[in-house]
Design a protein around this nucleic acid. Structure first.
Length: 114
DNA sequence: CGTGTGACAGGGG
DNA sequence: GCCCCTGCCACAC
C-alpha cells in the first residue's frame, strides 16, 4: 500500500469518498478532476472495484443524465435509490430529481484544498 | 503485445 | 428535447 502507487482507481476512490452527504456527482466530473475527462468510462470501471471495497459511496455517483445506471451493481434492485432517498435526494424512475441541485463538482469543491 | 470491454460523454439527426 | 452512433482511456485476458 504505497500512496505514490495510487493508480487511477485509487484516485477515483479518494474523490468518491469526498462526496458530501446528500450530494451526487457524475463520472465525467470525477474524470475531469483526475485530468482524464475522456476516460469517464474508466471511473465507472473503478467504481466496479469500489463496490468490492464497500467504503465508497458509489450510490452518489451517477451518469451525466442523473440516471442511476449502476444500480444494477448494487445488491438490491433499488438499493441505490433507497440510499439516495435516505440522503434527501428524490429519485424517480431511476433518475435523480433536480440533479443539478444536488450535483457536486469535485473540480470546483476540491480545488480549494489544492 | 493485441483484442475486448465498460456503472460515460459529446455531437448529430 | 430525445434517441442513436462514435470516440475515448485504462484494465483484464
Amino acid at each position: 500500500m504505497k500512496p505514490e502507487n495510487e493508480n487511477f482507481f485509487e484516485k477515483v476512490y479518494t474523490v468518491a469518498r469526498q462526496i458530501p452527504f446528500g450530494r451526487v456527482t457524475s463520472y465525467g466530473a470525477i474524470a475531469k478532476y483526475l485530468g482524464t475527462a475522456r476516460s469517464a468510462r474508466m471511473v465507472g470501471w473503478a467504481m466496479n472495484g469500489a463496490h468490492k471495497i464497500g467504503d465508497i459511496p458509489a450510490h452518489r455517483v451517477v451518469n451525466r443524465k442523473g440516471l442511476l445506471t449502476g444500480k444494477h451493481h448494487f445488491e438490491g434492485t433499488n438499493l441505490m435509490q433507497q440510499l439516495l432517498e435516505n440522503e434527501g435526494i428524490k429519485v424517480v424512475d431511476n433518475q435523480i430529481v433536480n440533479f443539478e441541485v444536488h450535483f457536486w463538482d469535485p473540480w470546483q469543491e476540491l480545488k480549494q484544498f489544492s
